[in-house]
Amino acid sequence: MIVLLIRLLFISLIIFLIYSGFKYLVNPKRKLELAHEQKQYYFLDDKNNVRKNFMITYKGAIFEGEKYLGTTTNSFEVVSMFIWAKSTSELQGLSLDDFQYIEENVKQHYPHAKIDWKSPIKELLVKKREKQDES
Score class of each variant (00 low, 15 high):
residue 103 E to M: 09
residue 60 G to C: 00
residue 4 L to A: 01
residue 46 D to V: 02
residue 106 V to E: 09
residue 4 L to G: 15
residue 69 L to V: 05
residue 17 L to E: 00
residue 106 V to A: 09
residue 129 R to Y: 01
residue 113 A to K: 03
residue 11 I to M: 12
residue 51 R to F: 12
residue 21 G to V: 00
residue 44 L to G: 00
residue 118 K to Y: 00
residue 36 H to G: 11
residue 125 L to T: 05
residue 11 I to G: 05
residue 50 V to H: 08
residue 54 F to M: 08
residue 71 T to F: 12
residue 112 H to T: 01
residue 105 N to C: 06
residue 21 G to I: 03
residue 78 V to A: 06
residue 99 F to P: 05
residue 116 D to N: 14
residue 88 T to E: 14
residue 135 S to L: 15
residue 114 K to D: 03
residue 56 I to Y: 11
residue 13 L to M: 13
residue 10 F to H: 01
residue 109 H to E: 10
residue 104 E to V: 08
residue 133 D to F: 08
residue 5 L to W: 14
residue 65 G to E: 10
residue 23 K to F: 06
residue 9 L to G: 05
residue 52 K to V: 08
residue 58 Y to C: 00
residue 45 D to N: 12
residue 74 N to M: 04
residue 71 T to Q: 15
residue 46 D to C: 03
residue 18 I to S: 00
residue 39 K to S: 15
residue 124 L to I: 07
residue 97 D to R: 10
residue 67 K to W: 05
residue 107 K to Y: 09
residue 123 E to S: 14
residue 75 S to E: 14
residue 19 Y to N: 02
residue 89 S to T: 10
residue 89 S to V: 10
residue 116 D to E: 06
residue 128 K to V: 14
residue 47 K to S: 01
residue 8 L to C: 09
residue 3 V to R: 14
residue 33 E to S: 13
residue 124 L to F: 02
residue 70 G to K: 05
residue 42 Y to D: 03
residue 130 E to P: 02
residue 105 N to A: 08
